[in-house]
Amino acid sequence: MENTTIQSNNRSETVKKVTHIATYTIIYILLIGGSLMMFFPYLWMVMTSLKTNPEAANTLQLTLFPKVFQWKNYVEVWQKVDILIGLKNTVLIEISVIPVGTFVTAMAAFSFAKLKLIGKNFFLLLLMSGMMVPYAALLLPQYRVFSSLNMIDTLWPLILPGFFGNISMMFFFVQYMRGIPSSLFEAAKIDGAGYFAQYVRIMLPLLGPALAAQIVFWFVGIWNDYFAPSVYLSVNEEMTLQVILGKLNSSIGTGNNLPLVMAGAVLSSLPLYIIYICFQRFFIESMAITGIKG
């Protein structure tokens, strides 16, 4: 009697073990398969950028690696396409918008999170309602205004709106700042610090990683923005990196040369990937601290 129980216990233990191993095998197969599917297009992009054109457009045989690595493709795309000009314009937008925009955004968030203001919730809802208006509905009037200000084919239409802040970033900061104890600001008030000083000296330093994460997000957003830049910029000297990249397929000297197009795509994404690898922690973690509860 006792013997059979032990036996059946043993059996259920082995069954458990087998299902455990089977489960993990399935999980790993799915995950590794998925990861390969994610990674393969990138690998193919890089490998194609290093092939000769006939090699890349080979219709008979699928080959991943080039026979000879054509590093000169990168030199060629660098010479034929104004990547440097695109880079300069993109960076120009980034460094004008982000410091001013972030400062303005965090200041407004500080007010919403910590200061007394009549009609505060109304103002907050008002600003947030702007997030649901599609950009396409704002484009035509803004295009007209910028055109009457002679700002078409300049970077101003892409820079000016950023100076007034970023509402989704503000929403994030309001959430985050509410978690910071108000007593810190009460104490500063007693010491005679004004509201602006409280914001700059106490709140801003406390934002730390949240600030960094949001800046990185905005940076990536501006870097990859395509719709507005493609509408406003049609002169080569003023194009951002993405607009130049968008034109690569059809034009600017690459003809239908696939390896060159891919080399351009790799080159223009490279800075972002470096940032992604360096700030990886921020990308993943800042999502986790948005205050979203399951």
Binding site: V104, T105, M107, A108, F110, S111, F112, L115, K116, L117, I118, K120, F123, L126, L127, G130, V133, A137, L138, P141, Q142, P161, F163, F164, G165, I167, M170, G194, Y195, F196, Y199
Partner: peptide, 23 residues
């Protein structure tokens, strides 16, 4: 405090009036 708080949110409000409501 109310005045300071309002001034702090004024820039986004102006942006909203110009770029969103106006447009």
């Amino acid at each position: 405090e109310h005045i300071a708080a309002f001034l702090f949110i004024l820039i986004p409000l102006i942006g909203f009036a110009l770029f969103t409501v106006g447009s």
